[in-house]
Design a protein around this nucleic acid. Structure first.
Ligand code: MN
Ligand code: MN
Ligand code: ZN
Ligand code: ZN
Lengths: 141, 141
DNA sequence: TCAACAGTTTAGAATTATTCCAAAGAAGAA
DNA sequence: TTCTTCTTTGGAATAATTCTAAACTGTTGA
């Protein structure tokens, strides 16, 4: 990727962060560029940290965790809970669901209009539905 | 609960464990009796450990974890993943789904015949669907 | 009845993911 | 610039869970 394009992406990213009420600091711009640059992805804090390192961005793991949570709060990411051991973050914030491969821990998107959940009962009085998550657990065989 | 009834429950439990290929040891019988005695419940290792202690059963936390996993493997329990922080176990192994209250971490059953997931796409070639989990996340307000 | 083996329990250490902390650094406003 | 407010960060702290190796117990078959 040439320098001009990279800079353009970063300015775009900075604008998104500012719009979300987050200071476009060097670490945040770098992480957000990595995250939001290349289509939809599912990744963990460790994954992102490693990817940043490979891209020559030196950020602490604490900063990666901070950024992931702040981005999620800001609606730039969505957190996916499928495995008790680790937390996944999803750059696809649109309505969709997931296959979760129990063999290798991989997540695969299921378009939101492909799947339908019907007859969800009303929640207990005083409670509001925040989201309906569907996880289709799959395995080899 | 009188002694006779308690003993009857324990003999019943021992039989279930034996049928599942698990030696009916004192800790396992005690835990299984607590778990399978009183209707459907959702609980964590800590919860069960505390409950055992209150019932006068001294078992280590390691044993609680072992038992929960073995019981799950044997089909006496089902594990529910809704919160990245802790693992829930469900004494209801029938087909059903859950409300998850994000305020207090409580799980509420949704009968399996009340909810329906349709148009689940076929999994990738060579993969089989193990289960479809639906979590309706709710909160106050 | 009981030895002997295999499976089980357990205390405590280890592991792992994640969060916390307090000091040093960087961004925005003036 | 200068000042103020966020941010970042290395390292310590947490918390859930797993591991380990030694002690213990259920089962079996002499
Ligand atoms: Mn996608
Ligand atoms: Mn954890
Ligand atoms: Zn996704
Ligand atoms: Zn349930």
């Amino acid at each position: 990727m040439d320098g001009n394009k990279k800079q353009a992406i970063q300015e775009d990213t900075a604008a998104r962060l500012r719009a979300a009420g987050l200071r476009p600091t060097r670490p945040r711009v770098a992480l957000a560029s990595l995250l939001l640059g290349r289509g939809h992805r599912h990744l963990t804090a460790e994954t992102l940290h490693a990817e940043a390192a490979k891209a020559g961005v030196r950020v602490s793991l604490a900063t990666v965790y901070n950024a992931l949570h702040q981005f999620t709060e800001a609606g730039l990411l969505r957190q996916v809970v499928v495995d008790a051991a680790r937390s996944y973050f999803d750059t696809n914030t649109g309505e969709h669901q997931h296959f979760f491969c129990e063999d290798d821990g991989r997540l695969i998107d299921i378009p939101g209009d492909a799947i339908a959940v019907s007859h969800v009962p009303a929640p207990p009085r005083g409670m509001a539905v925040r989201r309906v998550d569907v996880v289709v657990r799959i395995k080899r065989g």
